[in-house]
Amino acid sequence: MARIIIELRHPAHLLPPQYVAVEGESITVGRGYDNAVIVPDAYVSARHLCITLRETGWEVQDVGTENGTLFRGVCFRGQVFTAASGEEILIGRTTVKIHLSADSVCPARRLAGGSAERDIPAPLCRPLVLPGLSAIAGLGMLNRAFYGVSEKLVWSKVFSQAVGLFVNYLLAALIAAGFWALIGRLAVHRACFRRHYTIAVLSGVLYAGVVLALDYAEFLLDSSLTIAWVVATAAMVACFLYWHLSLSTPLSDKRKWMLIIGALCVVLLSAATAYVTFSDDLLKMRPYYDNSVYPPFFPFPSGKPLNLFLAEITR
């Protein structure tokens, strides 16, 4: 008598997998109560599969169901196929895997490490990447502190300022990583703190670069690139959110994108609400203008003749 373990997975992975152990050489799977394994799925037939242990593996028969059975990308209806232990068989919306009690389980380490498809690119996991990224961010802060100096240059002051900025930045990254690690712990029983932290630091560095580039572009083109700002920010937020979500949740791509778009919509909507509510007061009582006066790394744009500029005011 063999002990067969049937693993059932909810289509959206919203529930933890369910394991049913059955004694016997041959078992039936379906929605009906007379089956050895009962699958609560509306798209599964009353009797759906008949599974028999053979020496070559598991002989699986679809008993002529309405929706059929999907195995290795092929739909079977009333036919027999042979599956190996642990292979995915899709009936209705439920994934079924068949195991023998003698099969070895997946090593705990691999489970905790996650599957390859959900991981961040391997180069980012190299030991020096995280300190390297942090160092780049730190240099950026130092640069900012240095160019803000208008008194006698005291390096200790510059450093302390840079350290202040840097600590704030790292703290923000830590909080973000902690948040996502918690989500991961709850959703997939796995907290990839270090990976989330890498992503957070990387996103900060990249976004600082984008901000600088857009700032200069605005100045050199002598116009405000509001749409470019919104698009660049939204795109970056979307990318990094996608990454964090992939690591910490079992959601399908479609759902991840729905979630991201939803989040961006909420942000946009609240920004629009804030604008409508407060802008009248703000814009009436204080004028706002583009105040960039950038140093001449590049030649300054030639500018408009005075008369032309003044004519625009009166328009």
């Binding site: 002598d222 116009s223 009248d280 007061d281 814009l283 009436k284 009582m285 204080r286 004028p287 706002y288 203008y289 583009d290 105040n291 960039s292 006066v293 300054f300 744009p301 030639s302 500018g303 408009k304 003749p305 005075l306 500029f309 625009e312 005011i313």
Partner: peptide, 28 residues
């Protein structure tokens, strides 16, 4: 606040004489 309209601002780089200026003009 009801006595004033919103600020309208124009800013840009302006050539005047032999100098270039960054100029911002806000009117309400």
């Amino acid at each position: 606040r009801d006595d004033a309209q919103r600020f309208a601002t124009r800013s840009g780089i302006v050539r005047s004489g032999n100098q270039k200026w960054k100029m911002a003009v806000s009117t309400r």
